[in-house]
Structure formats: structure tokens, C-alpha cells
């Protein structure tokens, strides 16, 4: 019965051919060409000189690149805690019986993630603004002028300050994913837990979390991957400054490739980002799996 409607292998292949070719062309071809270019000295223009692994040697010793990598890791950690952690807590609150108008909470929670990162950067630039910003306005209002700062010009604070808009933006996004996962859990489980006397925190930690483990794993992967390629809102807010205090890897690659017209080394940085992102994503997945296995044992 099933076989009669199942199309032949060749038909399936033909249908898939176009999207697969398209995918290969837009994803794999640039990746492979970037890999090839990374072995050349290519300062923009038709002339390319093969220099072997010189670019990689330079990358290995490039303090700015590793500083940027550190900033990406900072973002990953801040956003794992901030985005997914807060989203989970928010979902627990929205799902509890005391909260009314759940639909409105969901809609407004999701709202920030529909705004483009460039607009968000500009909005938060205004919030942090030295003279007209709301933070300094508030500090002056409560008479703490001494705490007023040029927020985005503080090398020690700037990474935290650029991660706040990122966290704020994506809480709603993860809220929706986690909400849909929770709604698929059988309500009887919660009811029986309640009868057994489990409180809200216990229900969240010992019932909900283990049951949506796979969704959380997806969220973590999305979050790590998203933050390894962070670019747009930081570009709008600080351009990586002051100096390189908020530089991330993708922005450094952009700066080398386009501001300095060094396409060869820029390609090498792209390959570096790819490899490091793979390692971090793989590492985080392995870590999560290891942690959850221990609990089960």
C-alpha cells in the first residue's frame, strides 16, 4: 500500500536536486573557496600569491583575534544564562495559574525578536547615551551624578553592555520554543506531582526540565551558534570599540577583509571562526549530554 504512493528513488532525487544544488552553491562553495583563499596573500585585486600556511601562523599569533574569540565566548555564556535561563523562568511564570492574559505576555515577550538588530542597536545606543540617555537621566534624577558614565566608552563594561540588548532581544524567541515544548507535556503528570506536594520550583526542576531536555539542547545549540557569529548590533553600537574592547570574531574578519582589503587573511579568519564555532558547539553539546547522563545514573 505504502509502496504504491512512494515515488521512485529517481523521482525523489530529481525533486531534491534543485534545492540541494542551490544549498551546495550558497553554503559549501563559499566555504571551500574561503578555505582555498586562506592559503593566499590576496590584498584585493586579481593578484594572489600562494603563501602556504603563513596566514594560519599569523592567525595563531594574532592577539586581537583571540581577544575577539574570548568576547564571543563571553557572549555565549552571558546569553546561555540570560536568554535561555530567563526565558525558562519567564515561561514558568507565564504558565503558572496566577498569571492572567497569557496571550498578551507571549506576544509582547516575542516582540523584541521581530525588530532588526540594527534598529535595536540604535535604540540601545540612545538608552546608553551620555547626555540624553535614560540611564544617566535616572541617575541624575536620584542625585547620583557621580555614577553617570559614558557607558559604551568603558572598556571593562562594554561587553556586558552590548550583551544586554542581545539577551533582551532573544528571551521571547526562546520563550516561544520552550512554551511549545512544555505544552506537549501531559498535564496529568503535573497534577499528580501537585497531589504529591511538589512545589513550583520542584516541578520545574524535576519534571519539566528533564522532559524538555531535547528542546533545551536545541536551544543551547541555537544560542551558541548565534553568538559565535554575533555582528550586527555590536557593529551599530560600538564598531568593536573603544579600540578592540568589544570586537567579536566576525567583525574582526569583516574589518580585515573590507576595511584593510586583506581578503586572504580575512578568509583565513573566516575559516578560523568556522572551526572554533564547530568546536564550541560540539563541546557544549557533549557537555550537556555528559551532565544529563550523570543525573540519570
Amino acid at each position: 500500500m505504502l509502496n504504491s504512493i512512494k515515488p521512485k528513488g529517481r523521482t525523489v532525487f530529481l525533486y531534491l536536486l534543485v534545492p540541494v544544488v542551490f544549498f551546495v552553491f550558497t553554503v559549501f562553495v563559499p566555504l571551500v573557496t574561503a578555505f582555498v583563499y586562506s592559503f593566499f596573500e590576496w590584498k584585493g585585486g586579481p593578484k594572489k600569491t600562494f603563501i602556504g600556511i603563513d596566514n594560519y601562523v599569523q592567525l595563531f599569533h594574532d592577539a586581537t583575534f583571540w581577544q575577539s574569540f574570548g568576547h564571543n565566548i563571553y557572549l555565549v555564556i552571558a546569553c546561555l544564562i540570560g536568554q535561555i535561563g530567563i526565558a525558562f523562568i519567564m515561561v514558568m511564570i507565564v504558565n503558572s495559574k496566577v498569571v492572567k492574559l497569557k496571550g498578551i505576555h507571549r506576544t509582547f515577550g516575542f516582540f523584541p525578536s521581530t525588530i532588526s538588530a540594527v534598529c535595536l542597536g540604535l535604540i540601545w545606543n540612545m538608552i546608553y547615551h551620555n547626555q540624553y540617555g535614560i540611564i544617566n537621566w535616572f541617575l541624575r534624577l536620584i542625585g547620583r551624578d557621580d555614577l553617570c558614565k559614558v557607558w559604551l566608552n568603558e572598556p571593562k563594561l562594554v561587553m556586558l553592555l552590548v550583551s544586554i540588548p542581545l539577551i533582551w532581544q532573544y528571551i521571547g524567541y526562546y520563550m516561544v520554543i520552550i512554551l511549545s515544548a512544555i505544552s506537549s507535556i501531559d498535564t496529568e503528570i503535573f497534577e499528580s506531582a501537585e497531589i504529591d506536594g511538589a512545589n513550583g520550583v520542584q516541578r520545574a526542576l524535576y519534571i519539566t526540565l528533564p522532559l524538555i531536555k531535547n528542546t533545551m539542547l536545541v536551544c543551547i545549540t541555537l544560542c551558541v551558534a548565534g553568538n559565535m557569529k554575533a555582528f550586527d548590533n555590536i557593529f551599530v553600537m560600538t564598531k568593536g570599540g573603544p579600540g578592540t574592547a568589544s570586537m567579536v570574531m566576525a567583525m574582526y574578519g569583516y574589518q580585515i577583509s573590507f576595511n584593510q582589503s586583506n581578503m586572504g587573511y580575512g578568509s583565513c579568519i573566516s575559516v578560523g571562526i568556522f572551526v572554533l564555532a564547530m568546536l564550541v558547539i560540539g563541546g557544549s553539546q557533549a557537555l550537556v549530554k555528559l551532565l544529563t547522563r550523570e543525573k540519570e545514573a
Binding site: 590576496w42 584585493g44 585585486g45 573590507f258 582589503s261
Partner: peptide
Amino acid sequence: IATLAAADDLPDVFLLQGMNTIAWAEQGL
């Protein structure tokens, strides 16, 4: 224009920025 120069695909007539002159002249662009 930097991307087009890298791809050796510059338009017929364009505006050249002073600081690119030496590099682009060397590359025959």
C-alpha cells in the same frame, strides 16, 4: 568597490579613493 576590485570586476568608470591608488595600480586595476 573593494569587493568588486577583489573580484577583478570593477565597473568601466568609478571613483578611486586616494589611499587605494598604490595597491590598485600595482594590481593593474
